[in-house]
Protein backbone atom coordinates (compact mmCIF):
# COMPACT_ATOMS: atom_id res chain seq x y z
CA UNK A 1 0.00 0.00 0.00
CA UNK A 2 2.71 2.46 1.05
CA UNK A 3 4.70 1.51 -2.05
CA UNK A 4 1.68 2.30 -4.19
CA UNK A 5 1.27 5.69 -2.48
CA UNK A 6 4.93 6.48 -3.09
CA UNK A 7 4.55 6.21 -6.85
CA UNK A 8 3.44 9.38 -8.67
CA UNK A 9 -0.38 9.40 -8.58
CA UNK A 10 -2.26 9.26 -11.89
CA UNK A 11 -4.21 12.30 -13.10
CA UNK A 12 -7.64 10.76 -12.56
CA UNK A 13 -6.94 10.00 -8.89
CA UNK A 14 -5.50 13.45 -8.26
CA UNK A 15 -8.24 15.20 -10.24
CA UNK A 16 -10.97 13.41 -8.30
CA UNK A 17 -9.36 14.30 -4.95
CA UNK A 18 -8.95 17.95 -5.96
CA UNK A 19 -12.57 18.00 -7.18
CA UNK A 20 -13.80 16.51 -3.89
CA UNK A 21 -12.26 19.46 -2.05
CA UNK A 22 -15.22 21.51 -3.37
CA UNK A 23 -18.00 19.54 -1.61
CA UNK A 24 -15.77 18.84 1.41
CA UNK A 25 -15.37 22.55 2.18
CA UNK A 26 -19.02 23.29 1.42
CA UNK A 27 -20.32 20.52 3.66
CA UNK A 28 -17.86 21.23 6.48
CA UNK A 29 -19.05 24.81 6.79
CA UNK A 30 -20.25 26.57 3.63
CA UNK A 31 -16.71 27.42 2.57
CA UNK A 32 -15.99 28.26 -1.04
CA UNK A 33 -12.75 26.87 -2.42
CA UNK A 34 -10.45 29.74 -3.41
CA UNK A 35 -6.81 29.94 -2.41
CA UNK A 36 -5.67 33.29 -3.82
CA UNK A 37 -8.04 35.05 -1.39
CA UNK A 38 -5.49 34.16 1.29
CA UNK A 39 -2.98 36.56 -0.22
CA UNK A 40 -5.55 39.30 0.35
CA UNK A 41 -6.32 38.11 3.89
CA UNK A 42 -2.59 38.23 4.67
CA UNK A 43 -2.49 41.83 3.40
CA UNK A 44 -5.53 42.69 5.51
CA UNK A 45 -4.05 41.03 8.57
CA UNK A 46 -0.39 42.05 8.32
CA UNK A 47 -0.29 45.31 6.39
CA UNK A 48 -2.62 47.71 8.14
CA UNK A 49 -3.37 50.65 5.90
CA UNK A 50 -6.12 52.95 4.74
CA UNK A 51 -6.68 50.99 1.51
CA UNK A 52 -10.43 50.22 1.57
CA UNK A 53 -9.91 46.92 -0.29
CA UNK A 54 -8.10 45.56 2.78
CA UNK A 55 -10.29 47.06 5.46
CA UNK A 56 -12.53 44.15 6.37
CA UNK A 57 -12.93 41.59 9.10
CA UNK A 58 -10.29 39.12 7.83
CA UNK A 59 -10.77 36.92 10.88
CA UNK A 60 -14.09 35.77 9.38
CA UNK A 61 -12.06 34.10 6.62
CA UNK A 62 -9.46 32.59 8.93
CA UNK A 63 -10.56 29.06 7.98
CA UNK A 64 -8.84 29.64 4.61
CA UNK A 65 -5.52 30.40 6.31
CA UNK A 66 -5.87 27.13 8.25
CA UNK A 67 -6.46 25.45 4.88
CA UNK A 68 -3.20 26.77 3.36
CA UNK A 69 -1.23 25.90 6.48
CA UNK A 70 -2.59 22.40 5.88
CA UNK A 71 -1.30 22.53 2.30
CA UNK A 72 2.21 23.36 3.57
CA UNK A 73 2.06 20.50 6.13
CA UNK A 74 0.66 18.08 3.53
CA UNK A 75 3.41 18.97 1.07
CA UNK A 76 5.99 18.38 3.81
CA UNK A 77 4.45 15.00 4.74
CA UNK A 78 4.29 13.85 1.11
CA UNK A 79 7.89 14.89 0.43
CA UNK A 80 9.32 13.45 3.64
CA UNK A 81 7.38 10.22 4.10
CA UNK A 82 5.86 9.42 0.70
CA UNK A 83 8.64 10.69 -1.54
CA UNK A 84 10.67 8.81 -4.07
CA UNK A 85 14.01 10.21 -5.06
CA UNK A 86 13.59 9.67 -8.78
CA UNK A 87 13.92 12.65 -11.12
CA UNK A 88 10.73 13.86 -12.72
CA UNK A 89 10.33 12.40 -16.22
CA UNK A 90 9.64 15.18 -18.70
CA UNK A 91 8.95 15.44 -22.41
CA UNK A 92 12.14 15.24 -24.48
CA UNK A 93 11.42 18.54 -26.25
CA UNK A 94 11.05 20.31 -22.91
CA UNK A 95 14.24 18.75 -21.57
CA UNK A 96 16.12 19.99 -24.65
CA UNK A 97 14.65 23.48 -24.36
CA UNK A 98 15.48 23.71 -20.64
CA UNK A 99 19.02 22.44 -21.20
CA UNK A 100 19.40 25.43 -23.55
CA UNK A 101 18.59 27.63 -20.54
CA UNK A 102 21.09 25.73 -18.35
CA UNK A 103 18.27 24.08 -16.42
CA UNK A 104 19.34 20.46 -15.99
CA UNK A 105 18.52 19.62 -12.36
CA UNK A 106 15.20 17.75 -12.44
CA UNK A 107 15.39 16.42 -8.88
CA UNK A 108 12.84 18.77 -7.30
CA UNK A 109 9.33 20.08 -7.92
CA UNK A 110 11.00 23.46 -8.45
CA UNK A 111 14.11 23.76 -10.64
CA UNK A 112 16.97 24.63 -8.29
CA UNK A 113 18.87 26.15 -11.20
CA UNK A 114 16.54 29.14 -11.31
CA UNK A 115 14.60 29.20 -8.01
CA UNK A 116 17.19 29.51 -5.27
CA UNK A 117 18.63 32.21 -3.06
CA UNK A 118 21.75 32.21 -5.20
CA UNK A 119 19.66 32.74 -8.33
CA UNK A 120 17.71 35.57 -6.66
CA UNK A 121 20.77 37.79 -6.92
CA UNK A 122 21.05 37.37 -10.68
CA UNK A 123 18.92 39.43 -13.07
CA UNK A 124 17.24 36.35 -14.52
CA UNK A 125 16.50 34.84 -11.12
CA UNK A 126 15.16 38.13 -9.78
CA UNK A 127 12.80 38.58 -12.73
CA UNK A 128 11.57 34.98 -12.46
CA UNK A 129 11.13 34.81 -8.67
CA UNK A 130 10.07 38.36 -7.79
CA UNK A 131 8.50 39.35 -11.11
CA UNK A 132 6.66 36.06 -11.51
CA UNK A 133 5.31 36.15 -7.97
CA UNK A 134 4.15 39.73 -8.39
CA UNK A 135 2.22 38.87 -11.57
CA UNK A 136 0.56 35.93 -9.79
CA UNK A 137 -0.53 38.05 -6.82
CA UNK A 138 -1.63 41.07 -8.85
CA UNK A 139 -3.31 39.07 -11.61
CA UNK A 140 -5.25 36.65 -9.44
CA UNK A 141 -6.83 39.41 -7.39
CA UNK A 142 -7.55 41.53 -10.47
CA UNK A 143 -9.22 38.48 -12.01
CA UNK A 144 -11.10 37.81 -8.77
CA UNK A 145 -9.68 34.33 -8.26
CA UNK A 146 -7.14 31.79 -9.37
CA UNK A 147 -7.16 28.23 -10.61
CA UNK A 148 -8.99 27.03 -7.50
CA UNK A 149 -11.54 29.86 -7.21
CA UNK A 150 -12.33 30.30 -10.88
CA UNK A 151 -11.23 27.18 -12.75
CA UNK A 152 -12.44 24.63 -10.20
CA UNK A 153 -15.00 26.28 -7.89
CA UNK A 154 -16.29 28.72 -10.52
CA UNK A 155 -16.62 26.17 -13.31
CA UNK A 156 -18.17 23.65 -10.89
CA UNK A 157 -20.94 26.17 -10.22
CA UNK A 158 -21.26 26.99 -13.94
CA UNK A 159 -20.13 30.62 -13.72
CA UNK A 160 -19.50 32.17 -17.13
CA UNK A 161 -17.07 34.81 -15.73
CA UNK A 162 -14.98 31.94 -14.37
CA UNK A 163 -14.82 30.34 -17.82
CA UNK A 164 -13.67 33.68 -19.27
CA UNK A 165 -11.06 33.99 -16.51
CA UNK A 166 -9.84 30.41 -17.04
CA UNK A 167 -9.41 30.98 -20.78
CA UNK A 168 -7.48 34.17 -19.98
CA UNK A 169 -5.19 32.26 -17.58
CA UNK A 170 -4.40 29.72 -20.28
CA UNK A 171 -3.79 32.36 -22.97
CA UNK A 172 -1.43 34.27 -20.63
CA UNK A 173 0.45 31.10 -19.72
CA UNK A 174 0.66 29.98 -23.33
CA UNK A 175 2.11 33.37 -24.38
CA UNK A 176 4.66 33.36 -21.57
CA UNK A 177 5.85 29.79 -22.12
CA UNK A 178 6.06 29.96 -25.90
CA UNK A 179 6.73 33.60 -26.76
CA UNK A 180 8.32 35.55 -23.89
CA UNK A 181 10.16 32.89 -21.90
CA UNK A 182 13.15 32.48 -24.24
CA UNK A 183 13.90 36.21 -23.81
CA UNK A 184 13.57 36.12 -20.02
CA UNK A 185 15.68 32.98 -19.78
CA UNK A 186 18.47 34.63 -21.79
CA UNK A 187 18.77 37.53 -19.30
Amino acid sequence: MIDLLKQPWPWYVAGALVGLTVPALLILGNKHFGISANLRHICAACLPSKVPFFKYEWKKEIWNLFFVVGIIIGAFIATTFLGNSADVIIHADLAAELAGYNITDLSNMVPKDIFSLKSLFTLRGFVLMVGGGFLVGFGTRYAGGCTSGHSIMGLSTLQLPSLIATISFMVGGFLMANVFMPYIMSL
Binding site: G131, G132, G133, F134, L135, V136, G137, F138, G139, T140, R141, Y142, A143, G144, C146, T147, H150, I164, A165, T166, I167, S168, F169, M170, V171, G172, G173, F174, L175, M176, A177, F180, M181
Partner: peptide, 10 residues
Protein backbone atom coordinates in the same frame (compact mmCIF):
# COMPACT_ATOMS: atom_id res chain seq x y z
CA UNK B 1 -6.14 40.06 -14.50
CA UNK B 2 -6.47 36.58 -15.97
CA UNK B 3 -3.89 37.31 -18.64
CA UNK B 4 -1.51 38.84 -16.07
CA UNK B 5 -1.91 35.84 -13.77
CA UNK B 6 -1.35 33.48 -16.70
CA UNK B 7 1.96 35.16 -17.53
CA UNK B 8 3.04 34.76 -13.90
CA UNK B 9 1.74 31.18 -13.66
CA UNK B 10 4.01 30.06 -16.51
Amino acid sequence: GGLIFGLGWA
